[in-house]
Each structure stands twice: as C-alpha cells, then as structure tokens.
C-alpha cells in the first residue's frame, strides 16, 4: 500500500544542507501498522510527510497504492490526501464554531459529498471512536480527550486507505491514549495501512513492526514475528 524506495530528502542548500533521510526503503501493507521510532532529528516526521504527500523526496520514489506521489502535481497530491490519507496529528484543531458532527463532516463536504452522505459517514466515524454522544457539542464544551477523539474521527472519516499518525496520543492520559491506539489498530485491522511515529514504546508496541531511524537511516527493525506463542514459556494458555 505504501512503498518508499531509496528515499532521500535534503532540506536547505550548501553549508546549511541537512540530509533528513538518506536512501530509506519502507513498505507498509494493507492491514499492517508500522511504528517508526528514533531520536529527535532522525527523520521520523519527514518520513511521515513524504508518505502522506505533504512533501516530495529529493531522490527516490514514494508510492501510495498505484500513485507515484512524486509524479503527481500539487492538485493530484491534494486529492490523494483528501480521499485516501487520514492524518492523526498531535494538534488537530477543531473548528470552534462547528459541532463535533459538523467538524467531522467538513472534509467530506469539501470533497463534494452530499450533506446526507457526509452526515451518515461522519456519524459512523464518531461512533468508531466512541464519541457519538458528543455529535451536537461544540469543541469548547469538550474535555481534551474528547476533542482529540473527535479530531481522530475527522482524520479517519470515509474510506481512508492509509492512516498516518504523528504522536497521536499527545498529552492524553494513559487510558485515553490507549483508547486512541485501539481506534487506530481497529482501522488498520479493517484493512487500512498505518504508519505511526512515536517516541513512546507503549504505543509503538501496538504496531506489527517497529522501525528505528537514526540520522536519516533505518538502523534496525523488529520482524513481524514471532508472536505471543514464543513468548510465554508456560504455554498454559492456548
């Protein structure tokens, strides 16, 4: 679903040149959640921006499905982002003048969907994150955790094939953070491809694979197996 080949991204010129990524290969299949970990400045966020068509590589290719992101023009990339890519960022600002439901409907309406269909998809997305009872509330009347979940519903609304998350649990408490990870995981289990950038080992642990970046290079990764069967020597539990 997502495929990066020998992706290099250089910011700046001459003496100020910074190699954010140096020839990175990465694949994320449908139904797979991959976590990216690494110290600040290792290239994690650049990787995520490239995967979502917010940025284009200096060298190498990024494919989302069949689309070569580097070959699309700005309009094509915008369409790709609007229709197929869901972003879950730490600061997802809701529009204060709109209710939770209207906030979630917004990207669908911008994409030309009828109000009726937008409403039903938005209602489903709110239910997916367990906030359907907040549909008519305004952002100011929600707790931080509630607003974050509504923002996630907005990011995931509609049939997104690729979900990108950058520290999605932000400043949430651990129970709410776990609820956010459950939503992401459920969406991936339902068939989307997921890429998660985090410094939090507990959240990375929800992924099928964990990739480590350092100085713009992939330095290590966990395989997708072995599974739990190998883990507990007791083997009492089937």
């Amino acid at each position: 679903m997502l495929r990066l080949r020998r992706v290099t991204r250089v910011h700046g010129y001459g003496a100020a040149e910074v190699h954010a990524l140096r020839g990175v290969d990465l694949d994320v299949a449908m139904g797979e959640l991959v976590a990216v970990m690494g110290p600040s400045g290792s290239g994690k966020s650049t990787l995520l921006h490239l995967a979502g068509g917010l940025d284009t590589p200096t060298a190498g290719t990024v494919h989302v499905g069949r689309d070569d992101v580097g070959a699309l023009d700005a309009k094509g990339r915008a369409r790709l982002r609007r229709r197929h890519v869901g972003y879950v960022f730490q600061d997802l600002n809701l529009v204060p003048a709109l209710t939770a439901l209207e906030n979630v409907m917004l990207p669908l309406e911008l994409d030309g969907l009828s109000a009726r269909r937008a409403r039903s998809q938005a209602t489903a997305a709110l239910a997916e994150v367990g906030t359907d009872d907040l549909a008519d509330r305004f952002p100011d009347d929600m707790s931080g955790g509630q607003a974050q979940r509504v923002a996630i519903a907005r990011a995931l609304v509609g049939p997104r094939r690729l979900v990108l998350a950058d520290e999605p649990t932000g400043a949430l408490d651990s129970v709410t953070g776990e609820a956010v990870m459950r939503v992401l995981r459920a969406r991936v289990d339902a068939g989307a491809a997921g890429l998660l950038v985090t410094h939090d080992a507990r959240h990375a642990a929800w992924a099928d694979r964990i990739v480590f970046l350092r100085d713009g290079l992939v330095v290590d990764s966990t395989g997708a197996d072995p599974g739990p069967d190998h883990l507990l020597s007791g083997a009492v539990r089937a």
């Binding site: 642990a205 964990i210 480590f212 990764s221 966990t222 883990l231």
Partner: peptide, 12 residues
C-alpha cells in the same frame, strides 16, 4: 532495544 520492544509488542 529491538528485542525488548518485540517483547513489549507481544505482551501488548
């Protein structure tokens, strides 16, 4: 770290 994270993932 890779090994510990793999265990953490499996416990999760």
């Amino acid at each position: 770290r890779t090994e510990t994270l793999r265990a953490l993932r499996d416990y999760t």
